[in-house]
């Protein structure tokens, strides 16, 4: 494993890329644990993980800014299109186009306020943010706006936690020095996959029942 990393470095793969790739399983595990043990649902596992990666590329500050712009514009557009009798796919296409233009405007605006970091954001994190919109809309249709909003906040929270974990230097060094940690992560996930205990959120959800439980009298 260390040889593989050395080889990649020798071939000119940036160290940052290697760290992020090695960290991706860590991010996934954090999200899986958040769901299985804590009870944070977010938008599944892929969405928060990919947003975490996008944050790594844009830095958290700009990442969050872009996320909220994208979401706000998407919701606004959707609201305007609501009464139109267009098919779902066409509506989504229009909405995503408007979002894309809004992001362009936002970047230009950021540049003019000398936020060079914003202007330098590469295309992929931007696209990632935009795809979140569709996820949001699907949840909104199925479970309502409140749930979608709730899950969006959870997603951002999880992505931020992952962001700080990956940016933590001591942890980065550890993973670089012992890439075998990634194997440990698989074992951890197997354990998580078999976990049948209550989630932390469920301790709260069922607190009344837990407090009142009495084992039935032996009959």
């Amino acid at each position: 494993m260390p040889d593989l990393i050395q080889l990649a470095l020798d071939q000119g793969v940036p160290q940052e890329t290697i760290i992020y790739i090695l960290m991706y399983p860590v991010i996934l595990t954090v999200i899986a644990a958040a769901r299985q043990v804590v009870g944070i649902k977010a938008f599944g596992i892929y969405t928060p993980s990919i947003i975490a990666v996008a944050f790594l590329a844009t830095t958290l500050k700009y990442g969050l800014a872009i996320f909220f712009v994208v979401l706000a514009v998407a919701l606004g557009t959707r609201f305007i299109l609501k009464s139109s009798k267009l098919l779902y796919i066409s509506k989504t296409a229009i909405m995503l186009s408007v979002v894309a233009l809004a992001v362009l405007a936002f970047l230009a605006l950021g540049g003019s306020f000398r936020r060079t970091g914003l202007a330098n954001v590469s295309i992929f994190p931007l696209l990632i943010m935009i795809t979140i919109v569709e996820k949001f809309v699907v949840v909104q249709i199925e479970n309502g706006f409140k749930t979608a909003m709730y899950l969006a906040v959870e997603t951002i929270f999880l992505a931020s936690v992952c962001y700080y974990l990956v940016k933590w230097e001591a942890f980065q060094n550890l993973v670089l020095a012992y890439p075998a940690i990634v194997v440990l992560i698989v074992i951890l996930n197997i354990a998580l996959g078999k976990w049948t205990g209550l989630r932390l959120s469920e301790y709260f959800r069922f607190r009344d029942v837990i407090n009142n439980v009495e084992l039935p009298r032996k009959k």
Binding site: Q36, T196, G197, L198, R199, V209, I210, V213
Partner: peptide, 21 residues
């Protein structure tokens, strides 16, 4: 009287519902 933790084990949570039932 059971402890809080023991009592909570009697509750069916999402994980147990999916995995065990």
């Amino acid at each position: 009287m059971l402890s809080y933790l023991e009592r909570s084990k009697l509750i069916l949570g999402m994980n147990a519902r999916n995995m065990l039932y």
